[in-house]
Amino acid sequence: MPKISIIVSSEKLDKLLPAMTLATTAAIMGWESEVFFTFWGLLALKKGYVPREVSSDYKGYEDELKRAVSSGVMPSWREVLEQGKKTGRLKIYACSTTMSLLGIKSEDLVEYVDNVVGAATFLDSAKDSDISLFIS
């Protein structure tokens, strides 16, 4: 089966949703799928985090996107992530450097984070991927 590796460096709604849509769809299709959350992306893995904003360049679309999610036309990014996790093929990694940079501890992270890793570990895991994406 193919493999996809995605790096997410933003905690904004318009970055999380497409990243998790691809990651979870891949896992549902039987692919191996992994997502590495780094820099501001790591904020999305903190317990209780709810994305309320889109990127500043696209503020004009914020209400539309939020309405699509709240009405159920689009699933919330967390629902998408949780369904991906249920397949057992979606791995979520938190960036170790960002953890210390932002003062985030392991216990601050949601339970579906598989591991806290550094760049070399993620690269080693991602090196045989068929698709690799950086979402920022």
Binding site: T21, T24, T25, A68, V73, M74, P75, E79, V80, Q83
Partner: peptide, 14 residues
């Protein structure tokens, strides 16, 4: 119905 991608696939997979 009325769900956009990836809604239909997620619902089916479940």
């Amino acid at each position: 119905r009325y769900k956009s991608c990836p809604g239909p696939l997620l619902a089916l997979a479940e």
